[in-house]
């Protein structure tokens, strides 16, 4: 990664315009050519520095529902619980976290709010673990921007 790559990562996290040639406009802001920008974006994607390039959606705005939920998976059956939780397509992300009580945290995404309760019931039934549900009551800030 060089300085130009860094400028791309820092400058384009929210900066692709909706216009005929968005990469050209973005490249001009950074001070490089359009083809150079496209080549660098392809490379950064291939190297895994970028996970994607495009719109970030707030899917609950179009009628879906989300929640953050957690459970305690006992140490000796942790992997089995992971397999059961991950098997459900409604589980979008799942993280192991250091905590005495709640060591597995996952995001559920469903098409309707009612389905959230069903999925939680299903996980409790499949794993035998109590699921703690932490739906968002209010959002103060969301902006996943990282400086390279």
């Amino acid at each position: 990664m060089d300085e130009v790559d860094r400028a791309i990562i820092n400058g384009l996290q929210g900066g692709l315009p909706v216009c005929e040639r968005p990469y050209l406009e973005a490249a001009q802001r950074i001070g490089i050519g359009e083809e150079d920008l496209i080549a660098r974006l392809s490379r950064l994607l291939a190297e895994g520095v970028l996970t994607r390039i495009g719109p970030l959606f707030q899917i609950e705005r179009i009628g879906g529902a989300f929640t953050l939920a957690a459970l305690h998976a006992p140490q000796d059956s942790f992997d089995a619980v992971v397999a059961k939780v991950n098997a459900l397509p409604e589980v979008a992300h799942n993280y192991a976290r250091d905590h005495k009580l709640l060591n597995m945290w996952f995001v559920l995404a469903t098409e309707t709010p009612e389905e959230i309760d069903n999925v939680i019931g299903r996980i409790e039934c499949d794993t035998g673990c109590e699921v703690f549900n932490f739906p968002k009551s209010r959002e103060y800030f969301v902006e996943l921007k990282f400086e390279a």
Binding site: L16, V18, L44, L50, I53, P55, L56, F57
Partner: peptide, 10 residues
């Protein structure tokens, strides 16, 4: 519905 359009770093 779209928060922003851009690169998503890992």
């Amino acid at each position: 519905v779209i928060r922003r359009i851009g690169v998503v770093p890992n």
